[in-house]
Simulated assay, not measured.
Amino acid sequence: LTHKILEMEERHKEEMDTLKEEKENLQSLVTRQSYIIQELEKQLNKATTNNSVLQKQQLELMDTVHTLITLCSKEGVLLKNAKKEEEKPFRDCADVYQSGFNKSGVYTIYINNVSDPKKVFCNMEINGGGWTVIQHREDGSLDFQKDIFE
């Protein structure tokens, strides 16, 4: 009987030692998992902050685009859905101006009795707009009265 009790005590001690070791392993695992959870929470906070910043930047960008669209429509710049000047056969810059284009620039016109369309510079700001620029002097230094045989 004493021998049996000693055996049981020895098994009990071994089981207790195994349980203590498992408890220590579990505590170590819980500590590591707690650290990982804390790190994940930090990363989640960073991601949430970044997402908020990105959303703010997206709103600012949308406001800027809206402002640009409004500005372009006020300035007479054509938008994607508007008719392009190439789609309409203009006879001269006055025709271009009367069609609603009020920005000086290069436009395509179709001159009577000329088969190919011509690209010309139209001045839309001086003297009421709609002027086809034939010659343009910057400072008067270029003499346009040239001899034909030169």
Rank of each mutant, 00 (worst) to 15 (best):
S115K: 04
T49V: 09
R91H: 13
Q27V: 05
A47R: 05
E85S: 14
N102K: 15
V53M: 11
T64L: 08
I134C: 06
L59I: 11
N127F: 14
G105W: 00
E125T: 15
K56R: 12
K56M: 12
T132L: 07
L19G: 01
P117E: 13
G140V: 04
V120L: 02
G128R: 11
V77Y: 02
M8P: 00
I37P: 00
I69K: 12
N51I: 15
Y110E: 13
I148A: 13
E22T: 10
E41N: 11
N81H: 13
G129N: 02
H66W: 05
T64C: 10
K146E: 11
D143G: 02
L6N: 07
Q55F: 07
S141M: 04
G129R: 04
I37E: 05
D92I: 11
K46D: 12
K119F: 08
I5L: 10
F144C: 06
T108N: 03
K88Q: 04
S73P: 02
Y110M: 07
C72A: 15
A82V: 06
P117L: 14
G130I: 06
K88R: 09
G76M: 01
S34L: 15
E9W: 07
K56Q: 13
K118R: 13
D92G: 10
S34A: 15
S141E: 03
N112T: 05
P117Q: 04
P117C: 06
N45M: 13
L71P: 00
K4S: 11
E75R: 01
K4E: 08
S141H: 04
